[in-house]
Design a protein around this nucleic acid. Structure first.
Lengths: 134, 134
DNA sequence: TAAAAGCCGACGATATTTGTCGGCTTTAGT
DNA sequence: ACTAAAGCCGACAAATATCGTCGGCTTTTA
């Protein structure tokens, strides 16, 4: 249906929150409350962002999350890749060749998907978290 | 997950088929066989395209489907709109204002979604069925 | 009047998305 | 050392969307 999952929307909002926050570190509870996002769900999202090195976490009392890099260094494409998986519009142009269809040569639609894909990618690659918050 | 549904993929392939076919009219059965798409599913897709005036149908023996307009007059955006519904990346920028979130003013993410949306739209609006087949 | 074709609504299977829950580990403050 | 606050992790469950099937109907041509 060509839509951005709420997972990505939530994730991005959390990152924006961290980026503009005056605090050096923000707990999951705080972010979820301020952004109105389910605590448990956001936990999974941030945990994933943590594993892929976009945010860092500190455990224990006074713990929380903070950005791993300067917002300038975080491209939107990175974020979405982590949260949405390898975002290819259609499998037949994706990385996994087993989905590349047999009628590849004849398939005139393929070029279209590729074009749209490119246009999305270039937008995503050209914008950073820092661009969003200024 | 930011993907094009197979419904749209099938629909587009069917339209391309009609556009490049030497026959003036092609039955559902023929298209589904040649394109390797489920007969019953494709029926629903073409029926929808028919209702919205992109293709026309003739009933009875020797019946089938044919394009309602010249491929030059059919923009890809039209096709996808019919098949995917109102394709907005996120509800909060969609037509239905009840989904526009409360934190609209604060929401820095919104501009991003809009930017991506615009880039997709302009690609989709600038390409016609005719462009695909030449 | 029979066969081929499209029309239509209901249904069901599957996949994906969106959460929820419970118990674990780590850490700061007392 | 103990406790409470916080993150970590895997299993599960609910909701939704996608994909496809089915049966019976109408229309049309030979």
């Amino acid at each position: 249906m060509l839509k951005i999952s709420t997972k990505s929307q939530y994730g991005l909002r959390a990152l924006v929150y961290l980026a503009i926050s005056k605090e050096k570190i923000n707990s999951l509870r705080t972010i979820s409350k301020k952004e109105g996002i389910s605590f448990d769900y956001l936990e999974k999202i941030l945990s994933r962002l943590e594993k892929t090195g976009l945010v860092k976490a500190r455990k224990g009392v006074l713990g929380g999350y903070f950005l791993a890099k300067h917002p300038k260094k975080i491209k939107i494409s990175e974020i979405l890749k982590v949260l949405e998986g390898d975002t290819f519009l259609v499998k037949c142009i994706g990385a996994d060749k087993k989905f590349h269809c047999i009628r590849a040569r004849k398939c005139l639609a393929k070029n279209l998907w590729r074009k749209i894909q490119d246009s999305i990618n270039s937008t995503l690659n050209s914008i950073t978290l820092a661009d969003l918050i200024k």
